[in-house]
């Protein structure tokens, strides 16, 4: 019995270790090599240095691409969250052609990114429009992220008891006031989650951006171009910095969400004592 349990335990530990290393060894390798004082992203280990990070932070091209990515990510996050919110709100009512709207909203999830990106690039060419960050790229990203925004927000909106909103109007609140004071605070965590999710998707997006960016750069495009032309440990440093930024964003977001809940709880415990 105990022997069998031990065996199970060992097997589980091995499987977990294999899965975890599968997930994280490549990233760890990259992190280690970004501190290597050698001209290529490769072994042997020459010595520890922070030089590549210094160069990465001083690299104007990288910084410019990073700023573009952040600005684009924020816009994509806000706009797709709005689209997701409005769609989710509309879906609370019985609307004509509901399933058709839902299908047309979610089908982009099933079409390979490269297909949609090429299709959009072709459209831009045919129409004779110039591709850049704030037109073609922004729209391409929105097509990609909006379904995720909807899928993040809809469950929260759906779970919200419509009687609570009705109660607000019953107590004299105009529909917009009822939404602002009652509905919004209830679904806010879903909106924050949607924003972070869409921001991260946009920040990391490569394939669509490649086809739709025109002459500008986002961070993934910049990284790709220097890897093609002039790979150095600075590339890994930029990659690590970008990854750290994404992680900090997500961590901050989830901490914000948790803190809101904690504030709610502490006021309850205060009242009880």
């Amino acid at each position: 019995m105990t022997a069998q349990q031990n065996l199970t335990r060992i097997v589980f530990t091995i499987v977990a270790a294999v899965v975890l290393s599968f997930l994280y060894v490549p990233v760890l390798t990259l992190i280690i090599l970004s501190f290597n004082d050698s001209v290529g992203i490769s072994l042997p280990w020459v010595g520890f240095t922070l030089r590549w990070y210094g160069e990465a932070l001083a690299n104007f091209g990288a910084f410019n691409a990073f700023v573009n990515s952040v600005k684009l990510g924020i816009c994509v996050g806000i706009i797709s969250t709005l689209i997701g919110l409005l769609t989710a709100l509309a879906f609370r009512r019985a609307i004509a052609g509901k399933s058709l709207v839902l299908a047309s909203l979610l089908i982009p999830l099933l079409i390979p990114g490269i297909v949609l990106a090429v299709a959009q690039a072709v459209l831009w060419n045919v129409a004779g429009w110039t591709m850049n960050l704030w037109t073609s790229t922004l729209i391409g990203h929105l097509i990609y992220t909006s379904p995720f925004a909807f899928l993040t927000i809809f469950p929260r909106v759906h779970r919200f008891d419509p009687n609570i909103e009705a109660a607000a109007m019953d107590l004299g609140a105009l529909p917009l006031v009822a939404f602002w004071t009652i509905v919004l605070p209830q679904i806010a965590p879903g909106l924050v989650a949607s924003f972070l999710f869409c921001f991260t998707l946009s920040f990391d997006e490569f394939v669509r951006t490649l086809f739709l960016i025109g002459s500008q750069n986002t961070l993934p495009i910049y990284l790709w171009s220097i890897i093609l032309n002039n790979p150095s440990p600075q590339t890994s440093a930029i990659a690590i910095l970008s990854m750290t930024f994404s992680l900090v964003m997500v961590a901050t977001g989830s901490m914000l969400l948790r803190q809101r809940r904690l504030i709610g709880h502490s006021s309850i415990t205060e009242a009880e004592s």
Partner: peptide
Amino acid sequence: LPPYRRNVNTVFQSYALFPHMSVFENVAYG
């Protein structure tokens, strides 16, 4: 008249209290 202009108030079956507000703020809402 819409609900917010009628001098009637409803007690809902599901209570429909505002979960993010204290009892005081719930009662003060109207």
